[in-house]
Design a binder for these strands. Structure first.
Length: 579
RNA sequence: GGGCGUGUGGCCUAGUCUGGAUAUGGCACUGGCCUUCUAAGCCAGUGAUCGCGGGUUCGAAUCCCGCCACGUCCGCCA
């Protein structure tokens, strides 16, 4: 893709490079953006060169600036406070940007195809109950990353690593098969995952009270981990409905997962065994009461205990060992492995990494860790019933959105229309509130914040999109086959600001995808929506008497709508024509 | 005890990797703007020892050292 801003930036870098070469200064270029638009569009700090020139930073900047020339992109160069500030000629920028948006449409902002395949592993929640909002951060970050990476030109697959072995599903399995079924009336309107969690909770309690139950559950674990086909399929029957329920919740917030990889796969195909064979033969492996562990002290692992157990005393594998086998397999499937994990998995992730190294695998997964969402009264806990389920959050947000729509537009929309719009606003709000904060920040969930649809929230962006759509739907002037020269009519500061910001979209996608920071997209979109609202205030479109300016503005509205749409698409939030 | 992460106005948050111009926005609060394209909006205002203490630097929210608080982990759990 040929984006004008890339070209302009490259142009400036080339100019500075040749100036620095003439002066025999080291070529170290960091282009910044001035804090104030009045200063220019790009700035080049010259402080580091003042040591060489033995002059003040500002004098140095002047010396460098003298060797620079303007061209058709660069309108003006001025030195101020040790910076060389570049003002770009807005005409080509405006023309090219609007033109590029209207011709590239849904792919505006997207980067060139890279022929690199990424597996994004996310969610991977134990299928023993509904997703709660602590876990919900995972699919939202994961899905947004997947969408973002696709926009950045990668091909991607999302994977859910399905925990079908071990204690959690075994408890569920026992509960489903041994506890009395619930009465039809009490489960009438319940989702499958919400029904199942009751069995899990009861079975969990019984396990702690009744040694026989505990033994039964342990049998299930033992059999499944030894690859007993019958037990594994019994477990599968138990968790499938839960998974179905979880997927319904995810689907509601526009998340679908491409592939499910059951953990048992790697036991059944004996790849775990092969992994163990190799790991046992490394010098780091030791044995203790029949169990094998790797001593990770020499790998920089510190703490009370540096032993990483890879088998139990009975020879069966452990979760992390199977995870190594899974990652070893993934490494053969993709160019880049990206995992989204809770911060509690940091050590385990490091152990997997070391395991892969010992297997001679160089494709080490990259990981985005997120902190937990807690409640004002403390950590979320299903057992203590101190938990907010994702479904409840979605329901509340949709309900709130419905009330707002009804308040404003009851006389214009049908009941069905209001419900449809409310669903999109409510679910969008859920995603946006989670993705706008960088993953490593702790979050305390507050209903008040979650249900606030003003300011930096999804409805603000959807609203700007709806306003743009509204203008276009009322317009009767054709904007097909417009010559881009007409866009130079767009001279109002609000128009220029908006266009300049839209020109940055590819940069933002680039930056966000390289650093795996989806929240950058959220704050960028917020800026676009905000600038659009300012434009909306300052520049009437439909009533504009100058025909050419009107057309240019219509094109600008269409571009803004497109950029908002493309950005919302990366965030997995529905754009709205009306709200 | 150790590892990792976080700490920015009353609350939330950007910027931290790659040091740079008066620290970004939002919520709340105060005042103003709907006979004109949707007021879920716009404009203005109040409000910050950037956790604390040192250091490096012409320059530190950003880098280094020490400390404090919170989260998280250090299971033959997952």
């Amino acid at each position: 893709m040929d984006y004008i801003y890339f070209k302009i930036q490259q142009e400036i870098i080339t100019h500075i490079t040749s100036a620095l070469k003439i002066l025999k200064y080291p070529v170290q270029i960091k282009l910044e953006r001035p804090p104030d638009q009045g200063l220019g569009d790009f700035s080049f700090p010259c402080f580091s060169f003042s040591k060489i020139s033995r002059k003040s930073p500002n004098e140095t900047a002047k010396i460098i600036a003298e060797k620079l020339s303007t061209n058709h992109f660069i309108k003006n160069i001025c030195v101020d406070g040790g910076y060389i500030n570049f003002s770009i000629d807005e005409t080509p920028l405006i023309q090219e940007t609007v033109h590029s948006i209207l011709t590239n449409k849904q792919s505006y902002g997207h980067l060139d195809k890279k022929n690199i395949f990424i597996i994004v592993e996310h969610t991977s929640a134990n299928p023993n109950g509904p997703l709660h909002i602590g876990r919900a951060r995972n699919p939202i970050i994961g899905d947004t990353l997947t969408r973002l990476l696709k926009a950045a030109g990668y091909s991607c697959e999302s994977q859910f690593y399905l925990d079908d072995l071990g204690k959690q599903v075994a408890i569920l399995c026992w509960g489903i098969n041994n506890l009395p079924k619930e009465e039809k009336a009490s489960i009438a309107n319940k989702k499958l995952d919400h029904i199942a969690v009751g069995f899990y909770q009861k079975a969990n309690d019984l396990m702690n009270e009744d040694p026989q139950v505990k033994q039964d559950i342990q049998d299930i674990i033992w059999k499944s981990e030894h690859g007993d086909i019958q037990t594994i399929s019994l477990i599968q029957e138990a968790y499938q409905p839960v998974l179905k329920g979880m997927n319904e919740s995810l689907k509601r917030v526009n998340i679908t997962i491409d592939t499910y990889i059951p953990e048992s796969t790697f036991v059944k195909d004996s790849s775990v065994e092969k992994v163990l064979d190799i790991l046992k033969n490394t010098p780091f492996c030791h044995e203790e009461h029949g169990a094998y562990y790797l001593d990770l002290e020499s790998f920089g692992i510190k703490g009370r205990n540096t032993k990483f157990f890879i088998t139990r005393g009975d020879g069966t594998s452990l979760y992390a060992t199977r995870d190594i086998a899974y990652h070893a397999w993934k490494a053969t499937q993709a160019d880049i492995l990206l995992n989204v994990l809770g911060e509690d998995h940091k050590l385990e992730s490091k152990q997997v990494e070391i395991g892969l190294q010992l297997l001679g695998i160089e494709k080490i997964p990259k990981t985005v860790f997120y902190s937990f969402v807690s409640l004002p009264e403390g950590k979320m806990s299903t057992r203590r019933n101190r938990v907010v389920y994702l479904d409840d959050l979605i329901d509340e947000c949709v309900q709130r959105a419905y009330e707002e729509v009804k308040k404003r537009r009851a006389d214009e929309f049908s009941e069905l229309e209001m419900k449809t719009i409310a669903e999109k606003i409510g679910t969008g709000a859920v995603r946006y509130n989670i993705i706008k904060v960088q993953p490593e920040k702790d979050m305390v969930f507050q209903w008040e914040d979650a249900l606030n649809f003003e300011g930096n929230a999804a409805p603000f962006i959807q609203y700007a999109h709806a306003r743009a759509s509204s203008i276009l739907s009322k317009n009767e002037t054709s904007i097909k086959g417009i010559e881009k020269q007409i866009y130079s009519k767009l001279m109002h500061p609000s128009e220029i600001q908006l266009i300049k910001k839209m020109a940055l979209f590819p940069f933002v996608i680039q930056e966000a995808s390289i650093t795996y920071k989806p929240h950058l997209i959220a704050s960028y979109l917020f800026d676009i929506a905000s600038l659009f609202n300012q434009f909306y205030r300052d520049c009437p479109v439909l009533s504009e008497p100058d025909k050419e300016l009107k057309i240019a503005r219509l094109c600008l509205v269409a571009s803004a709508k497109q950029v908002l749409n493309n950005g919302l698409c990366i965030l997995g939030i529905d754009a709205l024509e009306e709200m």
